[in-house]
């Protein structure tokens, strides 16, 4: 009896300790995010370097975000990025799923060489190709245009097919065979057999390609180089707010903008991670 009591006590204290450890970790992890949130509600437009919490609270910077000036045109940026993200999302998702299906389900002579090429291309630093991509776009007169940017984001997306392929690999081959015997064309197997079964990876691909343009600033900065603020995406718009000459009057707005962008992205991200876990493990184990 006594022994049991002790065991239980031990258990409770270890549970408390365990959860306390997680709480401490979560606390450390969230400090910068809390700072972002707090600073965005500061009344002072520059960076507050003397106290963690703002001296004066206000929503003024959020209000300012929605009243564009020459530098900050947040609603416009948001719209631009949204449009770019939508197109990128459609094209990349299609490309990724198409390549993944072709390499996973179909068998054809060039399959292996193509996949090996993809691995090799992935080993090159992407930064290196950037200048050449810029001049390629320029020779098609596509710099400073959203079409160009969408092409940059989506054209090479086929290279990122591995996760989706891993998932398709786990779909039982017998299903495809059965469908073939029923007289289904390969295209119909793709659309009506494989895709419906692969909801996790489709959702994952859709969301991750939608998020790309919200996160990228290097390509956007290079391609939208006319300096016209109303044409920016959210990422470069916010990035430029931290320019040396602007940071003092825009830091709080940067935080406010960061919070506003993060909210929809976080929601999508939390949805995506669920499918990501399903997608990646489905592929890796049964490989």
């Amino acid at each position: 009896m006594e022994k049991k009591m002790k065991l239980k006590e031990n258990r409770t204290s270890s549970i408390v300790l365990h959860n306390l450890l997680i709480a401490v970790l979560a606390f450390i992890w969230l400090i910068p995010i809390v700072w972002l949130l707090c600073t965005s509600f500061s009344a002072y437009s520059g960076m507050n370097t003397s106290t963690f919490f703002p001296k004066e609270w206000s929503v003024a910077q959020y209000v300012k975000l929605f009243h564009p000036d020459t530098v900050a045109q947040f609603p416009q940026w948001f719209l631009n990025t949204f449009v770019i993200a939508c197109f990128t999302c459609v094209i990349s998702t299609m490309f990724v799923l198409m390549v993944a299906y072709a390499t996973s389900v179909m068998r054809f002579p060039m399959r292996k060489p193509l996949m090996n090429m993809a691995v090799i291309l992935n080993l090159f630093p992407g930064m290196l190709a950037m200048i050449a991509v810029y001049f390629t776009l320029k020779s098609f007169n596509l710099t400073n245009s959203y079409v160009g940017l969408i092409m940059v984001y989506s054209a090479s997306s086929g290279l990122g097919y591995l996760i989706a392929k891993g998932f398709f690999d786990t779909v039982p081959r017998a299903l495809c065979e059965a469908a073939r015997i029923d007289g289904c064309s390969e295209a119909r197997i793709f659309w009506q057999v494989i895709l419906p079964m692969s909801r996790p990876i489709v959702v994952y691909t859709v969301i991750s390609s939608f998020l790309g343009p919200w996160m990228d600033f290097v390509y956007a900065k290079m391609i939208l180089n006319a300096g016209i603020s109303s044409k920016y995406t959210v990422a470069i718009g916010l990035y430029k707010m931290l320019d040396k000459s602007l940071i003092n009057s825009y830091f709080t707005q940067f935080c406010a903008g960061g919070v506003l962008v993060s909210i929809p992205i976080s929601v999508l991200f939390v949805i995506m991670q669920r499918f990501y876990v399903e997608g990646i493990t489905g592929g890796a184990v049964k490989g």
């Binding site: 979560a26 969230l30 996160m215 600033f217 990422a235 960061g258 993060s262 992205i265 976080s266 939390v270």
Partner: peptide, 13 residues
């Protein structure tokens, strides 16, 4: 809570 930290775009965080 942990995922929120990575959901904020890197250029912001």
């Amino acid at each position: 809570l942990f995922i929120v930290t990575i959901a904020v775009p890197q250029f912001v965080s």
